[in-house]
Design a binder for these strands. Structure first.
Length: 506
RNA sequence: GGCCCGUUCGUCUAGGGGUUAGGACACGUCCCUUUCACGGAUGAAACACGGGUUCGAUUCCCGUACGGGCUACCA
């Protein structure tokens, strides 16, 4: 019988969760939902030196905002496998138990080398032109460990509480192969794998031991993680094997990385041209906070949609998917092997698609407080009309202001290009007639404004609408002009025209 | 450097032994529009290179180049 699907997202709280991490979480979540399984959040806080205050809460908040909440784990309620924080699990002695088992079976050993001694070893190997200096089957013979030291000395050292780590005893020359769901068979010779530290001298497990122990104890069925883990996967296979758990180990899936849009390499938070974090992130060690997708005006649905299509696709031409839809159709078979460059432009387009799904009333309600910040207030009905008009121009709600602020305040300048090209000595007299017609318009509606404009044209000949637009709004583009005038109001429209005529004829 | 992974328009990608190599973003042009957009239509734009295998390779195999990852008592 197939194991129940249980997957986990297991970040370390060493900083803000960036979009690559969110995508890993997302793919785990989608896979769990698709198969009616469990999605777990486990916090891998085994590195006490890199622990960052607030990072754990940030991870929880970010997942919530994205709508990809785990159903078990830190911040989401305990399940049968609590605790879900590795530091707490360490206190329970869970990891040491497994390490001891490996030592007892001869697959792991104590190493007493200091970091200075390790440095020396590396320097020595480099000087000897060894291509890949590492602690392995060959070099461990010259180091201070329970394989080289006499048995009674090892015992004495341990009893005296000498600092030591536990290392995996990797065979010298053995082919290790595993079948990755995304990449197929991967083969590595154990000579390339070093004797990984399993238990650190502070008693904490390393990632390599901890995630294996937890995946087994939490009955994880699939370990889905980034490609950066591919090189250490052979060591993990060995650990499962030596623990006698190779048949129970989760299936492996290594996700392709999200790459920088320009330049190269993994996406990095220093790349300030677009947000890297889902929510703004203030690193306690750094002065300036990083902006997030949320603060940049992205809908979480759009953000998740963007991420889903980076490295995965449904196999057809559709691009807009809700999380629920994604959960229906997601499969690892359609996940790519190669990394995907992130395109900030397309990300904006996605947000636009989601913005358009909202009604004018919904948009107005969100825009209302933004407008108030700018110092203006209008009735809900007015804002609904406003949003209806400006909607087609914007990709983000905050752009309602950028693209429509002239509805609320008069222009400070007039589009140079349009003025240079279209303003001439006849213009003033023409627009004086227009403003007269506007003053006499019965009720200030789009229909009547149009009619008044036509009446003016009957007297003056064809009037340039873009020029009229610039006189009133200052800018060359925007939504339907007469609709805008209706919103701006008769008195204000006429006043602005007169101001413009005055300024332009000075 | 070594090891591992990868490579279809600028970007995200579909496809797959015989196709006019499809779509999306961005870009150009046109239509609609007395302004502006939306929308519609359309254009330019890709199988990294070299060898095989094959009647035929972008598709399969091998090299090369290029890109990425890893190379800690970090994850």
């Amino acid at each position: 019988m197939e194991k129940r699907v249980r997957v986990r997202f297991a970040p370390s709280p060493t900083g803000g969760l960036h979009m690559g991490g969110v995508r890993t979480a997302l793919f785990n979540y989608l896979f769990a939902k698709k198969h009616g399984g469990d999605f777990i959040l486990r916090i891998e806080d085994t590195d006490q030196t890199r622990f960052v205050d607030g990072a754990e809460q940030y991870i929880i908040d970010a997942l919530k905002w994205c709508g990809i909440s785990p159903n078990e784990g830190v911040g989401f309620g305990d399940g049968p496998h609590k605790p879900y924080r590795q530091s707490e699990r360490k206190e329970l002695g869970i990891y040491k138990k497994y390490a001891d088992k490996l030592i007892a079976s001869g697959h792991a050993y104590y190493a007493f080398d200091t970091s200075e001694e390790l440095d020396e070893m590396r320097k020595r190997l480099e000087a000897a032109k060894v291509v890949a200096p590492q602690y392995n089957a060959v070099t461990r013979q010259n180091m201070r460990n329970s394989l080289t030291l006499p048995e009674d000395e090892v015992k004495k050292l341990l009893e005296a509480g000498a600092k030591h780590v536990v290392r995996l005893k990797v065979p010298r020359n053995e082919e290790i192969r595993f079948n990755d769901i995304i990449r197929g068979w991967v083969v590595v010779n154990s000579a390339q794998v070093d004797d990984k530290v399993l238990l650190k001298s502070d008693g904490m497990p390393t990632y390599h031991l901890a995630h294996i122990v937890d995946d087994i104890e939490m009955q994880i069925s699939h370990a889905v993680r980034g490609e950066e883990w591919l090189p250490s996967a052979p060591a993990h296979i060995l650990i499962y094997r030596y623990l006698g758990l190779e048949n129970e180990m989760p299936k492996l899936a290594h996700l392709p990385l999200i790459l920088n849009p320009d330049g190269n390499g993994k996406i990095s938070k220093r790349e300030a041209r677009f947000p890297v974090f889902p929510l703004s992130w203030k690193d306690p060690r750094e002065a300036t906070p990083y902006t997030g997708y949320r603060e940049s005006g992205y809908y979480p649905e759009a953000f998740v949609n963007i991420l889903a299509l980076l490295g995965w696709n449904p196999g057809n031409n559709e691009e807009i998917f809700s999380v629920a839809q994604l959960a229906d159709i997601f499969e690892f078979e359609r996940v790519h092997k190669s990394g995907a460059k992130f395109d900030p432009e397309k990300a904006k387009w996605f947000n636009q698609q989601y913005l358009r799904k909202h009604s004018d009333a919904e948009l107005a309600a969100v825009f209302k407080p933004l407008l108030k910040e700018k110092g203006y207030e209008r009735s809900d009905a007015f804002l609904v009309d406003f949003c209806k008009l400006v909607k087609e121009k914007v990709q983000f709600v905050h752009e309602f202001w950028d693209h429509g602020k002239y509805v609320f305040e008069p222009p400070l300048s007039y589009d140079e290009k349009v003025i240079t090209k279209k303003w001439n000595e006849k213009s003033k007299s023409i627009f004086i007639i227009v403003s007269e017609k506007f003053k006499n318009t019965s009720e200030w509606t789009v229909e009547n404004i149009t009619k008044s404009f036509h009446d003016a044209e009957a007297e003056t000949g064809k009037i340039d609408m873009q020029l009229l637009r610039v006189l009133i709004t200052g800018v060359a583009g925007g939504p339907q002009l007469f609709d805008m005038l209706a919103l701006i109001g008769r008195e204000e429209s006429v006043k602005r025209m007169e101001t413009a005529l005055h300024k332009l004829t000075q």
